[in-house]
Amino acid sequence: MRTELFSDPQAGRLHVLGPVDQIPVGEGRAYGVAGEQVAVFRLRDGSLRAMSAVCPHKGGPIADGTIDRTVVVCPLHQHAFELETGCSTTGAGPLRSYPVFADESQNIIVRLP
């Protein structure tokens, strides 16, 4: 996935990942962003969450996980991670979480440090 770059020296770099519609409601999709694997989720209330896409437990594809409003559950061994913080609620190591939002033209913008 090609990404565009904004420069914002104060708070890391903003990357445009394309239209929100690429992600079905309630699901996630994976993006390669500046060498990082990022899973972006579109919650049922329309808001977005972004976190690292590789499960720290056994490398499972987090973007294929099942979500609700607070956690994502990795499809391989059902470890759960808070969508806000990346902290595991089941004793695994944490995922990294990234700020993410949709701009006025409904593009996904994620901020990586």
Binding site: D21, R29, A30, Q37
Partner: peptide, 16 residues
Amino acid sequence: FTPGQFRTSLPLEVLP
């Protein structure tokens, strides 16, 4: 059925 239904979610790093 959904956009990107069969898009890879595979981490690109080497995995077991």
